[in-house]
């Protein structure tokens, strides 16, 4: 395809430059050029060749589209349900009972079968180095699959404009060896760590019953309140808030104090009360 384009491009531009150089008018030459009006044969040729070219292109398109859109369901594919939210991604592994956000873990050399939804506006799921993009459209389920090869970290991002923080709706993808992935799965499947210290216990109460509870879920595999990310294994992730910040204690603290400053206009419209911050933080940081 690229070669074809370059060919056409070169042809046009070279002819253009040739014309420019060859037929520039010379001073003192008043003669009139030959008045040619057209040439049917030539015109048919330069209609015909593009027709052939696009026919070839179309053939290629048909075969690729068929190859790409034919789903290859296989037993050991990893099923993944991706849900777009303003402005973060939710990842639901239905077969493994795991729900997480922003950071995606998949094994290497595996086929990942994705179903896509959105709860609010249209988003688009794109990890450039792994696959093309498909929109997450509310009220419609779309499919996408890709194969992973080498282990590594990949960068992805929401590609359909979805409002204020469209630029801050990123994805960090970790393609891991099977054993690393299994270990990750085992950890994710555990229930949330029980609070140990009194401070953590206070935090636990605020998070599980207080203000946080109305938007965030702890523990359950299926979120009941689907507004904010599931917090069960928060600290097992390395990034948060649409994968734009490293998840460390300082940033989390900042998030508790003023999340609107970190991600202007995001949908977490409240911060915990001053005196609650310390216990909440103590509890959240224990959620490994």
């Amino acid at each position: 395809l690229i070669y074809l384009s370059i060919l056409v491009f070169l042809f046009v531009e070279i002819w253009l430059v040739y014309n420019i150089v060859r037929f520039r008018s010379r001073p003192g030459d008043d003669s009139l050029p030959k008045q040619t009006y057209g040439n049917n044969k030539l015109e048919v040729v330069w209609t015909g060749i593009p027709v052939l070219l696009v026919a070839v292109l179309f053939g290629l398109t048909v075969s690729t589209v068929n190859a790409v859109s034919a789903p290859l369901p296989a037993q050991d594919d990893l099923n993944l349900h991706v849900i777009g939210h303003q402005w973060w991604w939710e990842f639901d592994y239905p077969d493994l009972g795991i729900i997480t956000a922003n950071e995606l873990h998949v094994p290497a050399n595996a086929t990942v079968q994705i179903t896509l939804n959105s709860v609010d506006v249209i988003h688009s799921f794109w990890i450039p180095q792994l696959s093309g993009k498909i929109d997450a459209v509310p009220g419609q389920t779309n499919h996408l699959w890709f194969r992973t090869e080498n282990t590594g970290v990949y960068h992805g991002q929401c590609a359909e404009f979805c409002g204020l923080n469209h630029a801050n709706m990123r994805i960090k993808v970790l393609v891991e060896s099977q054993s690393d992935f299994d270990a990750w799965v085992a950890n994710q499947q555990k229930p949330p760590a029980p609070p140990q210290t009194p401070m953590q216990r206070k935090g636990f109460e605020i998070v599980s019953q207080g203000i946080c509870h109305s938007c965030h879920t702890l523990g359950k595999s299926r979120a009941e309140k689907d507004i904010g990310p599931n917090l069960t294994h928060l600290m097992s992730r390395s990034v948060f808030a649409g994968a734009i910040y490293e998840l460390d204690e300082d940033n989390l603290h900042h998030w508790m104090i003023n999340n609107q400053e970190m991600k202007p206009g995001n949908d977490m419209s409240i911060n915990p009360k001053r005196e609650d911050i310390e216990p909440v933080l103590a509890y959240l940081t224990s959620l490994k």
């Binding site: 046009v12 002819w15 253009l16 014309n19 420019i20 037929f23 520039r24 008018s25 030459d29 003669s31 009139l32 050029p33 030959k34 040619t36 057209g38 040439n39 030539l42 015109e43 330069w46 209609t47």
Partner: peptide, 15 residues
């Protein structure tokens, strides 16, 4: 067709 028509016009003309 249009692009080629313009090029064809320039071809052999006095630019």
């Amino acid at each position: 067709v249009k692009i080629f028509a313009w090029l064809g016009t320039m071809y052999g003309g006095k630019l």
